[in-house]
Simulated assay, not measured.
Amino acid sequence: MNELARLVVTQPEARFQLMDVELVPGLRDQAPMAASVASRWADTPHEVVQGEPPSALGRLARIRFKVWIELPRGAKPAGALVAEHFSCDAKPTR
């Protein structure tokens, strides 16, 4: 448990934000997921695509999102990732 606690507090923090979602409705009973989707439906930008060929469960046609990951000082992003540096008013505590 001590090792697990140490690993948890040393991991970078992240934030995920949905920008836009394009959904194609399904035909089958989707009750198990309906409550989960409905709980965020009003505050998630989305478009329901009409005129697509039907499927049992529907499909996610397109999704746009942003992810912010707090990297340790000196870390370099790999590949096409871009690091955005900004100052923070918070002071570290010890």
Rank of each mutant, 00 (worst) to 15 (best):
S36K: 13
H46N: 01
E22Y: 09
P25C: 00
S36I: 07
H46S: 00
E13G: 12
R94E: 12
T44K: 11
G74M: 02
F16M: 02
G74P: 13
R6Y: 08
Q11P: 02
P53G: 00
E52W: 08
A90K: 11
A75C: 02
F65A: 14
W68G: 04
T44L: 02
V24F: 10
E47F: 05
V37E: 06
G79P: 05
V8T: 08
E22V: 09
P45V: 00
Q11H: 10
D43S: 06
T44A: 02
K91Q: 14
A80F: 10
V21R: 11
T44M: 05
E22P: 06
E3A: 14
L7C: 08
G26C: 07
G58V: 03
A5N: 14
D29P: 02
E22S: 12
L60E: 09
R28G: 09
L18N: 07
A34L: 02
A75P: 00
K76W: 00
P54Y: 06
D43F: 07
L27Q: 15
I63F: 08
W41Y: 10
P45E: 02
L81M: 13
P25K: 00
P32M: 03
A75L: 01
E47R: 10
A61H: 13
T93Q: 14
G51L: 01
V48Q: 04
P45F: 00
V49A: 11
P25W: 04
V67L: 13
I63K: 10
G79F: 09
R15Q: 15
A38H: 07
T44D: 04
A90D: 10
E52T: 06
R15E: 15
I63S: 11
A14C: 08
W68H: 06
D43W: 07
A90C: 10
A61N: 11
S36H: 14
A35D: 12
L27H: 08
G79S: 08
G74A: 06
L23R: 07
T10S: 14
V24Y: 07
P92M: 10
R64I: 00
D43I: 06
P53S: 03
A5V: 12
D20M: 10
W68R: 08
T44R: 05
F86I: 03
R73V: 01
V49K: 07
R64G: 13
A35C: 03
S55T: 15
L27F: 06
V9L: 09
V8A: 15
T10H: 08
L18V: 15
A75H: 01
L57Y: 14
S36G: 15
K91C: 03
R62M: 05
R59G: 07
S55L: 12
G79C: 03
A80K: 12
R94K: 14
A35S: 10
D89M: 14
E52M: 06
D29S: 09
H46Q: 02
L81E: 13
E13F: 09
W68A: 07
K66F: 08
R64M: 04
P32S: 06
V48N: 02
P25V: 03
Q11I: 04
A14K: 10
P72Y: 00
P45L: 00
W41R: 05
M19N: 15
R59I: 04
V49L: 11
R28C: 09
A38P: 01
T93D: 13
L71S: 03
E13C: 07
P54N: 02
A42T: 07
